[in-house]
Amino acid sequence: MAERADDRLVRLLGLVAYLDARGPVPVAQLAQHFGVSEAQIRDDVDQLWVTGTPGYWPDDLIDFDADAAERGVVHLTNARGMTRPLRLGTREAVALVAALRAMLESPVVQADAERRALVGSALEKLTAATGEAAHAVDVRLAPDGRPEVLRAVTTALARGRRLRIRYVNAADVTGEREVDPVRLLTQDESSYLVAWCHRAQGRRTFRMDRVLAAEVLDVPVSAAGRALAAEPEVGLDIAQSVSDPAVATGTATVVLASPARFVAEEVPTESVRDLPDGSFEVRVRVTNPAWLRGLLLANAAHVRSVAPAQVAQDVAEAAREALDAYAAVAGVPGARPSDDDAVG
């Protein structure tokens, strides 16, 4: 896709201001600094070379040293007054400041004094420079699970150490495993630990609120773990990685009444179709039957239909077992110790 005109304009103006302050800079270094290819930098320089003030006589144009250009060095000789870096626009300031605020308030940053100071000072400098009361957008990230687990995970990440974790999966089965931590992925909804799992001999993703305990081991991360960490976009495909691909069993189609709309919004779905009466149909990929059973039990009051029929029977059976359990175990009103003494 062709680059947007305004993105290119920002870089063209940026190049002139940067070069005016820096003096001659090799093309390769400029490309690295601005995060574009060397060919793009050469195109940009060619573009700048033919722009300037009305009249567009040679002295009106932005100019470079042609000899230096031959040697692969960009040497600005006439900036036509464009020497100052352009301020941030409102949208840019909002995107940057809202991101920094969300990071500052996240538990993983708040838990560590050094990190908190660092994000805080970056935010302060940016806010001072943008002069924006960029409050328009307000983002909060998810909690990162138990504080001691969070501390162990971030320590292991920072020191490159292996972790031993106790984890309960979506099927409510608890197990222990040793993992090389790769990323702590803090999403707006949930947080995940992406890791190389020594038991599975592969990459696994663990929901932080299901990590019951974590211990930093005195073992450096393995070569496999380091290789995974080197992948730039690791951990972006939550929906795929969170469950074990080996147990994928196909898809289920569920029709839900409108109040359960959040299901379509919070659960990984293959498709969502609105029906005329306000209800809607979702197709979900079933990677874990226990997960789907739990989802349907929780939202049963809003479920209009489930296909295949086997899934509906499975859920109904689980519900009947649960109703039997409730019939056998009477309620104990007033059993709670004290509401003022709530358990966190």
């Binding site: 305004d6 920002v10 995060g35």
Partner: peptide, 12 residues
């Protein structure tokens, strides 16, 4: 929006 902001900061 944010990558444009980063370009401007690099330019500065």
């Amino acid at each position: 929006d944010i990558s444009r902001a980063m370009t401007k900061l690099r330019a500065a």
